[in-house]
């Protein structure tokens, strides 16, 4: 059992947990994830380690309610426990001093981007961060990202904060104004990563993305998370989650994400029937 020590709501449907997991905290590196189960009948879902505190033995998990498991998680409070957490899994991000890095994030993907921003800043990079969302309140972790960024650009679809538009426009703006970008990371909804990659291609930039396919064990045992990169099959749980965005077969990736859509709906409806209206979201 893994005890939740604090819970915070970051945005509608987005929550921030600090959880006791000393061994995972002691070994975690930027870019890694955990696989967790909420309870005894629960499924195993992957979540990025958004932060960790080795001294206190804590890891931070930030998630958006997208299905039954995350909905069930959102009902837990500080003092409650998650049944299982296994990690840190996956290959850590390649952290070195590249020069200038452009860090692009959206949605709950910002939580996955944040530890990489922090580590790259620590390695001496100039960090230009672009965070995007539909509206200002949905762009999470701005202050934290700003702390480790030389510049933070916010984009919103409705213009409620920062640039009106989407992250790809900000990516172009940064390059067009003359910044020499050496490497990009783009983490967010798959459609955003796909278009972020497309923009990077046009701008001639190398770009890393963090893939979040369905997983079961998370240790390379089942192949549920297989993705095609550069024409070859990889297991995102052990070979990734980060891959060269230019080489990812995005359409296949997105199609595989939808594989259990019908079952996910059944699960969610059953949960809603049990808990009633989820007013806390």
């Amino acid at each position: 059992m893994f005890k939740i020590v604090s819970k915070q709501k970051l945005a509608p449907k987005e929550f921030d947990f600090w959880v006791e997991a000393p061994r995972i905290a002691a070994h975690a590196k930027a870019g890694q994830f955990v696989v967790l189960r909420v309870d005894d009948n629960g499924e195993r879902i992957p979540l990025t380690i958004a932060d960790y505190d080795k001294d206190k033995g804590l890891i931070r998990l930030i998630f958006q309610v997208v299905g039954k498991t995350t909905a069930a998680m959102s009902t837990l409070s500080a003092g409650d426990c998650l049944r299982d957490i296994s990690g840190p899994l996956g290959t850590p991000s390649e952290i070195e001093n590249y020069g200038t890095v452009m860090m692009v994030g959206g949605g709950v993907g910002i939580a996955a981007l944040y530890p990489i921003i922090k580590a790259l800043k620590g390695a001496g990079n100039k960090v230009v961060t672009i965070l995007g969302g539909r509206t200002s309140s949905l762009v999470i972790m701005k202050d934290e990202c700003r702390k480790y960024s030389d510049e933070l650009i916010v984009t919103t679809d409705d213009g409620s904060e920062g640039m009106k538009g989407v992250v790809t426009e900000a990516m172009k703006m940064v390059v067009e104004r003359g910044d020499k970008v050496d490497r990009c990371w783009c983490i967010g909804p798959s459609i955003m990563m796909k278009f972020g990659t497309k923009a990077a291609k046009e701008l001639g930039l190398p770009i890393w993305v963090s893939l979040n396919p369905l997983m079961v064990d998370g240790t390379g045992m089942c192949g549920c998370c297989r993705v095609t990169v550069d024409g070859k099959i990889f297991f995102a749980c052990v070979d990734g989650p980060e891959f060269d965005g230019h080489k990812v077969n995005w359409d296949e990736f997105m199609s595989r994400l939808r594989q259990y859509k019908d079952e996910e709906k059944i699960s969610m409806e059953k949960f809603e029937a049990e808990v009633g209206e989820q007013t806390w979201l």
Partner: peptide, 14 residues
């Protein structure tokens, strides 16, 4: 994961 007992267990088996 007891997929054969879905949706009592959360993990689906097609």
């Amino acid at each position: 994961m007891h997929g054969y007992e879905f949706p009592k267990f959360d993990t689906p088996a097609k």
